[in-house]
């Protein structure tokens, strides 16, 4: 067992365990904290796949940004509702059945296929290549993304404006 195999299994257990805790924990605050752990585990998987820049973006935007605004939303709604948001779920059996069936289908398809087991070598600095690609080949989607984020920001401000 090489180091990368051990790292993969450790990250897998961490990721699946924290993902299960996100959907099963009774307290919404705990679910958000478990989600932070799951997102950090994903950043670890990205590191394992030689995507250092994406791991950093993942930590900054997801584990930093999204967790903060989710916690903020919980605090706001909880303060207004005046009682703790206890988590109740419905249809646990049917939900588990649907998820397990989908997982079985995906895994059975994956196991039938011949997939590469060794990565093809990537030459050069990946982060530099990523930056060059984003600003040359993918410059139009990049600009559209800027537009989307502006629209999302304006929309969020509009929705959450104080009551008149």
């Amino acid at each position: 067992m090489t180091l990368s195999v051990v790292a993969f299994w450790v990250l897998s257990v961490l990721l699946v365990g924290s993902a299960l805790a996100v959907v099963l924990s009774k307290n919404l605050f705990h679910a958000v904290l478990w989600l932070a752990l799951a997102l950090t585990g994903t950043a670890g998987v990205f590191l394992l796949l030689n995507a250092e820049f994406l791991a950093a973006v993942q930590l900054l935007l997801y584990a930093g940004g999204i967790i903060t605004i989710v916690v903020f939303a919980i605090v706001v709604t909880e303060r207004l509702i005046g009682e703790r948001l206890s988590q109740t779920s419905r249809g646990l059996g049917s939900g588990a059945l649907v998820a397990a069936a989908l997982l079985a289908v995906i895994v059975s398809i994956l196991l039938q296929r011949q997939l590469p087991s060794t990565p093809l070598p990537q030459t050069g600095d990946l982060t530099r290549m990523l930056g060059e690609q984003v600003l040359t080949t993918y410059v139009l989607p990049f600009e559209l993304l800027a537009l989307l984020m502006l629209a999302a920001m304006l929309g969020a401000i509009y929705f959450a404006r104080p009551e008149e």
Partner: peptide, 11 residues
């Protein structure tokens, strides 16, 4: 699939 389970079951 775990995420899907959460979307289906959470209230």
């Amino acid at each position: 699939c775990i995420g899907l389970f959460g979307v289906v079951t959470r209230r």
